Each structure stands twice: as C-alpha cells, then as structure tokens.
Computed example of a mutant assay.
Amino acid sequence: MSEPLLSVKNMKKTFQANGGMFSKKKLVHAVNDVSFDIYPGETFSLVGESGCGKSTTGKLIDHLIIPDSGEIWFEGKEISKLTEKEMRSLRSDIQMVFQDPYGSLNPRMKVQDLIGEPLLIHTNMSAGERLKKVHELLGTVGLSPSHGERYPHEFSGGQRQRIGIARALTVQPKLIIADEPVSALDVSIQAQVLNLLQQLQKDFNLTYLFISHDLSVVEMISDRIGVMYLGTIVETAPKKELYANPRHPYTRALLSAVPIPDPDLTKERITLKGDLPSPSNPPSGCLFHTRCPHCTEKCKTQVPTPVEIAPGHIVKCHYPELTE
C-alpha cells in the first residue's frame, strides 16, 4: 500500500465551556486521542452521533483550529504546529466543503467571483483566465456559465452545494474535507451530489475525508469508515467489512438503526440504554461502558487498546469477540 496522504496521530482537543454564573468553567473533551490514516484517491468517512467530534476533527485537519496535542501529517510533513502564514501555501492542497453552502458563500458576491476568489489568492491568472476557469468549473459541477452572473440566494440548496464544490476545486486540491455536505438536502438531491463527488474524484484524482451522521450515505461513498463516539474512534474498517461484520457494540447499534427500504424485511433494533455522557465529564475506562450491554468492571476502569482483528479492521474494545 502507498504512503498515507494524511496521518492523524493521537490528536486531542478540548474547549472551555462556561459552567454558569456560580460554577467553574468546564473543559469539553471534543476530540480525545484520535488516530487514522487516509490514502491517496480514497474516501475515508467519519460517522457518529451529533456532538461526537467529527466536524471538530475536520476543522483541526484544515487548521481552522489548533489541536492541544497530537500530530497531523500531510504528504510527509507535520502541519499541526504551522503558523497561519506557513499554512497558507497548503491551503490550495486542503479544501473544505461545508454543511450549509449558503452560510459559506458571501451573499453580496456573484457566483463567478466567489468561485474565482481562490484563483485570485493562489495563482497569477489574469481576470480573463480566471473567468474562463470559473466557467469550466461551473460546467464540471453541472451548472452553466450564465449561473456565474447570479448571487447565492438565487439558487436552490443543491445548486449552492455544487457552487461550494466548484469553489473547492478551483485550486486543484489533493484532499477535500466534506463536512456533512448533503445532510441539508432532499434525498433525491443527496444522491445527485454524491454521484457528482464520486465522478469528480475519478476525474481529478481527489482524496476525501467525508464526515456524516448518516450510515446509508456513508455506505454509498466510502472506501473505509471510522466510527466515532464521544470524541474517539471506536472502530475502523473497510466499508464492506464494517457493514458485514461490525464488532464494536456501538457500531452494531448504529447499523441496526439504519432503515431497510424493503417493507417485507425486518431486523432486530439494538436500543442503547442510558443517555450519551457529557463530553465535559467523560466516563472513566472505556468511554462507551455506561451504555454497553457487555460492560464489565474492567471496562469501567481500563481504557481499551485498539486491536486489529482482521486486515484494516481495528476495534477499540476489551471484548470484540462478544459481538460475533
């Protein structure tokens, strides 16, 4: 296998949260000892419940926020400790597509200026060359050159997401971090955008970090999947292996909740007991032990070590054999 394009090693990030007028400020453990690799040309997905740290992980990689500890390696270079000025040259290599395309597009700028802005910053193209490139990109994402004269509010959600994707493509990135890029769209539009992302990956040799809470969406687009719970990755595996043989009890519960389109088929739904613990007061030992049906005293006191149970299939659980 080739060298990873991106390597995240033991990354941690906490935030200070105001505990109220008469209480102390609390530390929220948003990302807790996260490690994974992404290889050139693949789609690696992070999936989990809202608040599990997926989006924070994406922002840390894109240097929008700085990790407390750990390392982020991109093309063999450690980037987590770079200054903003040093990071500027890497901005063209790592681009983001956000959940809310309207929120990430300046409403006062025409679409052609929005898409062309990265070219103005990162290249020496003339105005005419930039406009030609913008028209090419609009066509690439299924829009016409005439759309460039309009403003973001004149487009539907799906069209705005296409504009966001075109903007990310302008500087020929190597890695695109797609943070819930289809969650705000209708199901039929979701499929169109996912198909577009897959086609662009082939055409431009792109690598994706795809962030989502929707396991059916993740199944469509992923090569490998990391399952996050309370700021940590509890299971990583190739897509087919994860869906056929989930070994962490949290992964099994998530997959059991995915609806089946055939009304004649039924499957057992695994219901987790208890509430999701607060990231400002995470449980000791295994973070999942408060909701796990297989919990023992060992789970309550000892942090599990990730174990590779099959090629590329890594589980952070003391008893992965109990879910066979």
Rank of each mutant, 00 (worst) to 15 (best):
262 D>C: 10
238 P>Q: 09
129 E>F: 02
214 D>G: 08
173 P>E: 12
306 P>S: 11
305 T>H: 11
63 H>L: 13
25 K>S: 14
50 S>Q: 08
141 V>E: 09
270 I>V: 15
245 N>K: 02
228 M>D: 03
232 T>F: 02
108 R>S: 10
294 H>I: 14
110 K>T: 13
188 S>Y: 05
201 Q>D: 13
47 V>P: 01
44 F>D: 07
234 V>K: 00
263 P>H: 04
99 Q>R: 01
60 L>H: 07
232 T>H: 01
157 G>Q: 02
81 K>D: 11
279 P>W: 06
307 V>M: 11
226 G>W: 06
58 G>R: 05
187 V>W: 04
40 P>I: 14
151 Y>Q: 08
186 D>F: 06
59 K>S: 01
248 H>A: 01
224 R>Y: 08
68 D>C: 05
281 N>D: 14
181 P>W: 07
123 T>L: 05
68 D>T: 07
20 G>K: 06
33 D>Y: 02
307 V>I: 15
168 A>V: 05
166 A>G: 09
185 L>F: 10
45 S>Y: 09
167 R>S: 09
288 F>E: 08
217 V>A: 13
316 K>D: 00
152 P>I: 12
301 T>C: 04
254 L>S: 04
209 L>Y: 08
176 I>V: 14
240 K>R: 10
235 E>W: 06
93 D>Y: 14
52 C>K: 06
239 K>P: 00
165 I>M: 06
64 L>K: 03
183 S>N: 11
305 T>K: 14
116 G>R: 01
67 P>M: 04
92 S>R: 12
171 V>L: 04
13 K>C: 09
182 V>R: 00
35 S>N: 02
28 V>W: 05
76 G>T: 12
139 G>I: 00
314 I>F: 04
84 E>P: 00
101 P>G: 07
18 N>K: 12
313 H>V: 03
106 N>H: 11
77 K>A: 13
47 V>F: 03
97 V>I: 15
296 T>Q: 00
159 Q>P: 09
277 P>Y: 12
94 I>P: 03
210 F>N: 04
202 K>H: 10
312 G>D: 09
13 K>F: 02
232 T>W: 00
124 N>C: 08
125 M>R: 10
131 L>V: 07
9 K>E: 12
11 M>I: 15
324 E>Q: 09
2 S>L: 12
57 T>W: 03
40 P>D: 12
77 K>E: 15
129 E>A: 14
280 S>D: 02
196 L>S: 09
232 T>P: 00
272 L>K: 03
75 E>V: 09
99 Q>C: 07
255 L>Q: 10
291 R>P: 08
296 T>H: 00
141 V>T: 08
303 V>D: 07
191 A>K: 14
230 L>C: 06
126 S>Q: 09
99 Q>S: 03
154 E>W: 12
29 H>D: 05
213 H>Q: 14
18 N>S: 15
265 L>I: 15
196 L>T: 13
